[in-house]
Every structure is written in structure tokens, then in C-alpha cells.
Design a protein around this nucleic acid. Structure first.
Lengths: 196, 196
DNA sequence: GAGTTGGTTGCACTGAGTGCACCGTGATCG
DNA sequence: CGATCACGGTGCACTCAGTGCAACCAACTC
């Protein structure tokens, strides 16, 4: 527990703000809640809100700094011998395991507000850009393919997120991600006919 | 020439606003240009600007209504016997042919401003959502696959857009789209090693 | 204990986006 | 043809997101 007091205070504010944002916006809707409301509910000033988040939407969707670190860690450690796509599949399935808690709230918000749908795509693209650095390092001679891998990962995650329905079990989400990775890994041009 | 005067006026305002937006923002940057500036340059009022576009970014990236119509037309007419992915490939290559004119400006704007990068993804997703209706109709028994096809198309287009460099010939863009379709169609899990 | 650093705060300001009432002209109908 | 309607444009006033700046205070450093 060697976290300095300063750092701890900072993390507390961050968490309080995101929690307040998810709570209030989840109850009253995105447009009905102001940045001021969220800050007040979190016990800080409006100005502090914008010190932590560049945007109201960011307060809802930005990943916890620890999670971002965990992703790069997973990427650094994963075994790539079965292939890059298989490695990315494993990393993402591991990564989204802790995601199920916030899934229902966020899924509903994205369905309700178009602006949030837009931002949500970028949030998944935070994952994508971390992946992009990794693929670029592993495919130095083929930047187009590296970019397609990263964008493909984001596409699978976004599709899983959108395909998951609010009355589904949160565990279904991981299954959707796995199936998405399989389909895109096999190739979107293949097996187009489904069994009856 | 059976366009009513009202409709013609409306289209004129739309085009004047988008042209002014691309011109001014291209020259002075996104944040330095206000909605008021754009409206004035287009010869209309600020209020009219927001009657046509919901957002400043929308004025730069929203597709011309005619283009949107053309896409659904292409989708309705395309031959699907070689497979859905091949059909989508053909439609997109056809569709992006007229895109090369605005490519340099938009590419530069996206690189300069993060907010525009976000919006640009939604603009490509306008294509994606049109595609989604089409794929859903062709794959009634497999909504996940239908969604993945639509999101895959958007991923290819976005990647091509981002991979295209300002000093490239605009024609290279179509080539990037074609190669993207081939890679994702074959499967991102395949042929990961590049020839030396 | 003196000085520095960094999170928090209040204040004032710009500009995006919206609701509303009004105006003028093209479309419609008796 | 004339009355009426529909609809795009406009001006005004308002809320609120987001930012720069100066100040404050508690935590860290030496």
C-alpha cells in the first residue's frame, strides 16, 4: 500500500466522479444531467470535473487508468506463437471479463443517446489504439495489415456490445466477443450461408 | 429538371454551408472557425446553419443527401451471387470513386483535431448503417454476422482513410479499400507473415 | 521550518446548440 | 385569380459545455 496521499486523492476524485456520472445519467438521462450536477454529487467543484474529464461523455466511458495499464500488460505478456489474431482474441476475452459490471448501464445509455453512441466507439478505440501500437511492432513491414487488425478488434468489440441485449446475461457478452473474433478471423467472405 | 424551387433553395443552402465549412476550417482550423463565420461566409444566418446541420462537425462530414441515395441504390442493384462480401466490396469501390475530391481536406482535418476524428468515424458509419439494413435483410437468421459485416465494411473504410497519406495520389485510396476488403474477407487470422 | 509541487476552487469568458415567435415567399385549392 | 397554407430563413434570448487564469492549501522535499 505504498500509494502517496496525493495520488490516492486524485484517484478518489476520479472514481467518485465516474460513479456519480453513471448513477445520475443512468437515472435521469444524459441531457437532463449537467456537469455541475455530477460534480456536486461527487462532492467536488465543477471545475474539478473538467480537470479529470475533457468531456461529459468521457466521465461515463473513459476507462479506469488501472484498466488501461492492465491491457498493455496483457499485450506485453501474451504468447504470439499461435498467431497475432489468436493472441488478440485471448487478450480481449481476458480484458472484458471485468467489464460486465458496467455493461447494462452503458448499453442502455448508448441506445438512448446518439452522441453517446459516437463517444462509445472512441472508447472502444482506446483499446484499438493500444492494440495498434502492439500490432505495428509485430508487423513492421505491413502497416495496412497492422491497422486492420486493430480496427478489426474494435469492430468485434463494438459489435458484441451492440448485439448484447439488456435482458441478456452479462456473461453472454464474452461469448459474443469470442464468436466475433472467430468470424472475422476466419474471414467475412467465408461460410455465408447459415445452417437452417 | 423537375426540382421544385423550395427544394432547390434548400439544397443550395446545404451545399453553400458545407463548401464554406470545408473552405474556412481547411484554412484556419476547426476551433478557430465559429458556426457564425461559416454561416456568414455561406450567406445565411447562424440559425439557418443549425437548421441544416446538428453540429459544426456535421457540416464538414455529413454526406450529401444525393450520395446517401446513391448508396442504397447501389446496394439494391448489386449482384449477390458471388457472395455478400464480394458484393459489398464492389459497391464500396464504386461508391468511393466520387470521394476523392474531398479526401485531402478531410484527411488533414481528422489528423489535426481529435473531435473530428471521432465524428469522422460516425460519418463512415452512416455507410455502415445503410449496409447494416442490407445485410440484415440478406442474413435474417444470423444477426451477429450481419452486424459484423456492416462493422467490417466501416472498419475497412476507416482504415483506408487513415492509411492514405496526404502526399499520396487520391487514386491510392481506392486501392487501399480494395486491399482492405481482401484482407478482411480472407480472414485476419490468415497469412500473418509478410514476404521479406 | 522554508520552499516547492500539485490538486482544488471561483470567476469570467467564448461559443455550441435550442426553443420560440415572426416574416416572406412558393405551393395549393376553391 | 385570390385566399390560405406550408415551409425555409431569421432574430432573440437562453442554457450549458469547455477553457484560461489566478489564488489557495495541504502534501512532499530538503
Amino acid at each position: 500500500m505504498s500509494i502517496p496521499v496525493r495520488e490516492q486523492q486524485r484517484r478518489d476524485s476520479w472514481s467518485a466522479l465516474q460513479a456519480a456520472a453513471l448513477d445520475l445519467v443512468g437515472r435521469y438521462g444524459f441531457t437532463a444531467v449537467t456537469a455541475d450536477d455530477i460534480a456536486t454529487a461527487a462532492g467536488v467543484s465543477r471545475r474539478t470535473f473538467f480537470n479529470h474529464f475533457p468531456t461529459k461523455a468521457a466521465a461515463l466511458f473513459d476507462p479506469h487508468p488501472d484498466d488501461a495499464d492492465r491491457l498493455t500488460e496483457l499485450l506485453a505478456e501474451v504468447d504470439t506463437t499461435p498467431g497475432l489474431w489468436a493472441a488478440l482474441r485471448a487478450v480481449c476475452l481476458d480484458f472484458v471479463a471485468g467489464y460486465e459490471a458496467v455493461l447494462p448501464v452503458r448499453r442502455r445509455l448508448v441506445a438512448e443517446d446518439a452522441e453517446l453512441d459516437v463517444y462509445h466507439r472512441t472508447a472502444h478505440r482506446h483499446v484499438g489504439s493500444a492494440v495498434e501500437g502492439w500490432t505495428a511492432a509485430h508487423l513492421p513491414g505491413d502497416p495496412l495489415r497492422a491497422a486492420l487488425l486493430a480496427e478489426g478488434v474494435a469492430a468485434v468489440l463494438i459489435t458484441a456490445f451492440r448485439s448484447w441485449q439488456p435482458d441478456d446475461d452479462p456473461a453472454v457478452f464474452a461469448d459474443l466477443v469470442a464468436r466475433g473474433f472467430d468470424v472475422v478471423g476466419t474471414g467475412l467472405a467465408h461460410q455465408e450461408s447459415t445452417p437452417p
